[in-house]
C-alpha cells in the first residue's frame, strides 16, 4: 500500500529531524499522507448515513470532532462549519472512503472533495505542548475550556490551522495546516520551543 513512497514527498519531509529534536519539551511529528476529504452536507439523514458508513458519528456540535473505527480503519471527523466536515483516515484510503461518502450523501445535496494533500498534519504533545501553542494561539486550551475532542479553526501565529485536542489531560494536540504554510509553522514551532528545550536540557 505504501509502494509509491519513493515518489511521494510530504510537505515536512525535510523537517523530520528538526522536529524530532524538540523532544522531550515538545513531541512533534508530521503524520504524512493521511487521507483527507472535505465533506459538505446539511441534511441530517445524509450526515447520519455517512457516519454509519465510516463507523463514526459525525460531530453534532460546532468546534468538536469525533473519532472511531470502522471498515476504513480509524477515522476522525472534524467539524469545519455547520455543513462542512473534514474526514481524516489513514494513508491510501482515499478512493474507498470517497466512494463510501459519495454513496451515503446521495440523494441529498452535498459534496465530497479529496483534499488529502491540501493540508498536512502534525501531532503535538509533551509537557510544554500547551505552553508552546499559547505563544501563538489566542484560544483558551485549558482542559476546562477545551476538553478532549475540541476542534477549532483559528490562527496559530500567522498561519491558519485546524487545532484538535486529542487528549486534554495529557496535552496532546493535532494541528492541520495548509501545505504551503507547513514550513513556516514548523519553523515557528521550533522557535517557540527554544526556551522549553533549554529549560529541560
Amino acid at each position: 500500500m505504501t509502494a509509491d513512497t519513493s515518489v511521494r514527498t510530504s510537505p515536512l519531509a525535510a523537517w523530520t529531524d528538526r522536529l524530532a529534536a524538540l523532544a522531550p519539551a515538545l513531541d512533534v511529528a508530521e503524520r504524512p499522507f493521511l487521507t483527507q476529504l472535505t465533506v459538505r452536507a446539511r441534511d441530517a439523514v445524509a450526515v447520519a448515513r455517512m457516519g454509519e458508513a465510516l463507523g463514526v458519528a459525525f460531530p453534532a456540535d460546532p468546534c468538536t470532532s469525533t473519532r472511531g473505527g470502522g471498515p476504513f480503519g480509524d477515522v476522525e471527523v472534524l467539524w469545519m462549519g455547520p455543513d462542512e466536515f473534514l474526514v481524516v483516515a489513514g494513508p491510501d484510503r482515499r478512493a474507498l472512503v470517497e466512494d463510501a461518502l459519495r454513496a451515503a450523501v446521495r440523494p441529498a445535496r452535498g459534496a465530497v472533495v479529496d483534499t488529502s494533500a491540501q493540508r498536512t498534519t502534525l501531532a503535538l504533545s509533551g509537557p510544554h505542548a500547551r505552553d508552546v501553542l499559547a505563544h501563538g494561539c489566542a484560544i483558551d486550551l485549558h482542559p476546562s475550556a477545551a476538553p478532549t475532542g475540541t476542534c477549532v479553526q483559528t490562527l496559530l501565529a500567522r498561519a491558519g490551522v485546524v487545532l484538535r485536542v486529542d487528549d486534554a489531560e495529557c496535552d496532546a494536540f493535532t494541528l492541520l495546516v495548509r501545505s504551503s504554510f507547513a514550513e513556516y509553522l514548523a519553523a515557528w514551532l521550533c522557535d517557540a520551543s527554544v526556551e522549553y528545550r533549554a529549560a529541560l536540557s
Binding site: 459538505r40 459534496a111 472533495v113 479529496d114 483534499t115 494533500a117 491540501q118 504551503s180
Partner: peptide, 11 residues
C-alpha cells in the same frame, strides 16, 4: 445546490 472547496495546495 453548490459547494466550493479550495484545493490550491492539493495540486
Amino acid at each position: 445546490d453548490v459547494y466550493a472547496a479550495s484545493v490550491t495546495e492539493h495540486w
